[in-house]
């Protein structure tokens, strides 16, 4: 039951992008087309799940055991950077089109605060191993979901009559704000974070 709760909380209620405002960079940068948004979301989900798994192991079996928990930031960044590198090589090999569509945002997953934020939340909330993996996966799915919603709206927006001054970034930011407001409506589902 707890695990389902964590999953729903990570996906919808405490969505990293719309509730914590983490990972805004790819949220605005890669959400102009649905295909690239899905690609980005899946890449991020992969990195998030693996990062949660590996960082939990590292935190509990290395950092806590040898009493050096202050290394969490450095070691977590190291894990995330390595995972992103692997994902990048993987995508370059198997989907050059997606690689080109994601462009600079793919290596930028490394510095995506959503992923570091997720690993730090995991430590802060003292999840056990299974909970951490579910939390990581759920956050990734939540990220993908939001990116997908955003991309869908932005594709429709292409045909909308947007006032000249609001074209491009301004209307996107307004959209992001409205989406965040809408997601606030989920906050009643689960009371604790």
């Amino acid at each position: 039951m707890n695990i389902i709760l964590i999953f729903i909380a990570a996906t919808i209620v405490n969505n990293l992008v719309l509730a914590y405002f983490l990972g805004i960079c790819p949220f605005l940068g890669v959400s102009s087309k649905i295909e690239s948004a899905v690609g980005m979301g899946l890449a991020a989900t992969f990195v998030m799940t693996l990062a949660a798994t590996v960082t939990w192991l590292i935190y509990h079996y290395i950092l806590v055991r040898f009493n050096v928990p202050f290394l969490e930031y450095v070691s977590f960044i190291l894990v995330i950077a390595s995972l992103v590198q692997i994902v990048e090589m993987f995508i370059k090999k198997f989907s050059p089109d997606l690689y080109r569509a994601l462009g600079i945002y793919l290596p930028l997953i490394t510095t995506n605060c959503a992923i570091l934020g997720l690993t730090l939340f995991m430590v802060l909330r003292e999840y056990n191993f299974l909970e951490s993996v579910v939390f990581g996966f759920g956050s990734g799915i939540g990220f993908t979901l939001v990116l997908l919603i955003m991309a869908g709206i932005r594709e429709e927006l292409e045909f909308a009559d947007v006032p000249e001054a609001f074209k491009g970034a301004p209307i996107t930011l307004i959209l992001a704000g409205l989406l965040a407001l809408a997601f606030m409506g989920f906050s009643g589902i689960i009371s604790t974070s």
């Binding site: 040898f66 050096v68 290394l71 070691s75 190291l78 894990v79 590198q85 692997i86 090589m89 370059k92």
Partner: peptide, 24 residues
């Protein structure tokens, strides 16, 4: 301990990256 821990982790990921780089 910190040095060994970070160095070890760095080495570990470096090896994994090197292998994937060759494979992919």
């Amino acid at each position: 301990i910190s040095t060994i821990a970070m160095g070890g982790l760095g080495m570990f990921f470096a090896i994994i990256l090197a292998i994937t780089n060759k494979k992919l």
